[in-house]
């Protein structure tokens, strides 16, 4: 007669608990076979009792129950963070760009649904002015940015900056472009942070704003001296570390998706 292995005892233990709740635990045959052995074998019965006693202690894991108002509180906080769906605005109020924004938001939602969430979508669209008006078409870039990705990209830029030496245009130019591109999103997330009152996030985004601005618009361009200065600032503020902490703290708060319009005012 073969004794029950620990795995089998564990399976049997949880099957017994499920049966106690009136659930169909499945695997009827295995269950009966194990139970038969346990009835006949003192050693296994003892092992089962020890397992049950220890696992029973784990029932005491503390659990906080949400009160009745909790759902409403969650909704209050979630509602402001939801990406907009297009149909929200009454159609007659939509200007050409508004319509476009609406579509961009809707398609972004679909894109987010279709792919794994947590990336950046750059969605370029040409603003179509009304056909009747011969106004020059405005090139406007609509970007859906997710906070987590913004932090990822920022971190990469900081790491590059940290290791940058001299003023090789192949290194400096992409850094400036990236900083410019990150600035707009940074401002949008900074406004969000204001509303949420998240102090650490506000502070980090403020420092980032300053640094990005310096990288993007350093007078006289980026050169060895200005890079060295930025590296010192970055070091002094511990920016890289702050961004990393924020990023992992917000593993999926990173999901906050915002629409950022670059070029032209809204």
């Amino acid at each position: 007669m073969r004794h029950l292995r620990e795995e089998e005892l564990i399976e049997h233990y949880y099957a017994t608990r499920a049966a106690g709740r009136g659930e169909d635990a499945g695997r009827e045959k295995e269950f009966r076979a194990a139970e038969g052995h346990l009835q006949a074998c003192g050693a296994c019965a003892e092992a089962r009792a020890a397992l049950a006693a220890e696992m029973g202690e784990m029932d005491g894991l503390p659990c906080a129950e949400a009160d009745a108002a909790y759902g409403t509180s969650v909704w209050n906080r979630v509602a402001s963070r939801l990406p907009r769906m297009a149909a929200e605005e009454p159609p007659r109020r939509r200007a050409a760009w508004g319509m476009m924004l609406g579509w961009a938001a809707a398609s972004a939602v679909l894109v987010i649904g279709a792919f794994e969430v947590g990336r950046v979508w750059e969605h370029r669209q040409h603003a179509q002015t009304a056909v009747a008006r011969p106004a020059p078409p405005v090139e406007r870039q609509i970007v859906v940015v997710v906070l987590g990705d913004h932090l990822d990209r920022t971190e990469r830029l900081l790491v590059e900056l940290k290791h940058a030496q001299g003023e090789d245009p192949d290194v400096v130019k992409p850094m400036r472009d990236e900083a410019r591109s990150l600035l707009a999103a940074n401002r949008v997330f900074r406004e969000d942070a204001d509303k949420s009152g998240d102090k650490a996030l506000i502070q980090a985004l403020d420092h980032l704003n300053q640094l990005l601005n310096d990288v993007a618009n350093a007078p006289g361009g980026l050169n060895a001296a200005s890079i060295a200065r930025l590296q010192r600032e970055m070091e002094a503020e511990g920016l890289l570390f702050k961004v990393r902490v924020l990023r992992s703290r917000n593993a999926h708060q990173g999901l906050t998706a915002r629409i950022v319009v670059k070029g032209g005012t809204v």
Binding site: V78, R81, P83, V117, L255
Partner: peptide, 11 residues
């Protein structure tokens, strides 16, 4: 909880 509802909404 918040993240889950945001994700669910988007999906």
């Amino acid at each position: 909880v918040q993240e889950a509802f945001l994700r669910a909404y988007v999906k």
